[in-house]
Design a protein around this nucleic acid. Sequence first.
DNA 1: TTGAAAGCGCTAACAG
DNA 2: CTGTTAGCGCTTTCAA
Lengths: 356, 356
Amino acid sequence: MTTIQDVARLAHVSVSSVSNVLNGKADRMRPETYTRIEEAIRKLGYRPNQAARQLKTGRSPILGLLVPTTANPFFGQLAMSMETYAQQQYGHRVLLCNTHRDKQLEAAMFDDLIAFGVRAVIVVSSLSDEQHIEAAMARGLAVISFDLGPDPGSVIRHDYVLPDNVAAGTLAARHLIEYGHSHLAFAMPKGLTYSRRQKIEGFMAAIDQESGKASGRVVEGKSLTRYGDTELASMGYDMAATIVNMDPRPTGVVTVNDMMAVGLMAGIRDQGLLIPDDMSIVGMDDLTLSAFTWPPLTSICMPMQAMSCTMVDRAVARIAQPDLEAEEICFEPTLTIRKSVAAPSTGRHQSRPGSR
Amino acid sequence: MTTIQDVARLAHVSVSSVSNVLNGKADRMRPETYTRIEEAIRKLGYRPNQAARQLKTGRSPILGLLVPTTANPFFGQLAMSMETYAQQQYGHRVLLCNTHRDKQLEAAMFDDLIAFGVRAVIVVSSLSDEQHIEAAMARGLAVISFDLGPDPGSVIRHDYVLPDNVAAGTLAARHLIEYGHSHLAFAMPKGLTYSRRQKIEGFMAAIDQESGKASGRVVEGKSLTRYGDTELASMGYDMAATIVNMDPRPTGVVTVNDMMAVGLMAGIRDQGLLIPDDMSIVGMDDLTLSAFTWPPLTSICMPMQAMSCTMVDRAVARIAQPDLEAEEICFEPTLTIRKSVAAPSTGRHQSRPGSR
DNA sequence: TTGAAAGCGCTAACAG
DNA sequence: CTGTTAGCGCTTTCAA
């Protein structure tokens, strides 16, 4: 490995001058010295040893990223956006951790990040218990959370970046109501997280506005904490039977995310119903693949790109300036209309079981 | 931050003894000393500074991972499997890089990895040009590649882990042929990569075995290097028109991966054809989501889990023993039968355009 | 069985 | 404008 010493020797200067060009302090030397050093660096293909640099400065150009699992296309997209932006914009690398929504793993990752000298981490978690996050912050880690919100009334202790989930729920329910649906359902995994609660709140608010003309129920599937994000579609599939057999049967259902909608649509088909004729579906996330399902899925689009960039911006800002004031940054979702929603069928016979 | 000094002081020993327990050299001290030190470590919540450790030893418990993009569920799954296994099995962390199939970015990542002291990297790339890989290896990086193969006749210079793509192509084509299809097509992005070549070879071999009874053509879409993996489904969608208008029209098509199949199925539907009645589709990868498409997608299943683990095993082994002999490790794919394949319709009128 | 001490490669005073 | 030097926290001889 070539070191800063080698460069200094070749350029006939001291190591500190080399260090100065490495750190952009061009004003500290004659232009010609600068050029000479630059040339030596190039000639040797020299790259500074990050471990040494970090040991000295305590800073590291690495961001931590915790997601439930990149196997879920939503988080896969998020991870890609963030990593790409962090790299392009700031030259920062990303240390990835799939937490599987496991608190132990999250905590272990925090410890590791600190040991690696990482100063900022982006956390996509559904864990309502934030005490391990607090612990990490106490140890000097800057935390940016995604899709989590501060407890009402509590002091904001870290940065929260999230879509307006209430608006998302409202947007979805209202779209269905506008099409004439009066029996709605909201499908999600078992257990209330911050964002699920908000989505339900928005969903219910839209229904309440109709004062009795529409009704909405929440349908829970299995627990993601136990079954994992890979199971989301499968969970949606299983929930189809429950939903189809509800009395009164909902004619419009909103799912907490698109993967669940994909599974739910498959399940509903296998129950012998047609989408959107017999049942309308609205997803959330607006995944790339949602344009290619059958029928193409109407979904609530979260501005992922913008949110990813914001999270990275905040994270990097905090590395430079750890005492930055904490903020809650909220993004507005939009409705992407495709073909999974139609007016409810008016006839008594909503379906042809077994037709498939 | 608590340091090894703090621990030494609290346990009334020297730093070297603490270092010894950190590195499992229990035989170098009295059991009671060991216990005392352990206790001090626990009491202080001490974690060794990785930068310092690495600066000293030159080793790092971090693996590099290069994928085109985790936004593609296939790579997202792969990244998850690998990261989870590396962490659970070896306590190694993963530095993620989305290369977007860009050679510059790949090369930059290699340089960074070296600067970070990373010793092994897993590369999922379609770049046929391996010279930047060679360069990285020359600088001491151990490389494990996925879905790449050695040039025939050349010396194996790094580890290659991959599915038997020839078998995959054969499996897919034969399945279609067994159902009575005689006009087949193989759909893929523009440009031959190692794995595409192999898949085509297997596809064609299965057809040739039928000596004239079946024919097969390769259909190319846009270039992934230019359009990105997010476009795969969209590309498949666009290719539907081309395929439907081919003369003779293929009745069975194999796609190079499931994302393309998902898009292709949507496109074919929009062309007014029914799947599998008018056209049968076989995908490759067997994504989780492929069980929930409409119709559920018959696909070639690659043993991702096993391949991921093998890559990590090799990578970690190489960190410990850099001069390990390079190997090519091949995994057998299997056929997952779902509902996107049926016998070709016999009538003249294969479709009802505009029915939808 | 334990401790002292020499660096790993770099940055950042500080001195010249 | 340039050079000298003291560590950052750890591992690893080597000596006691």
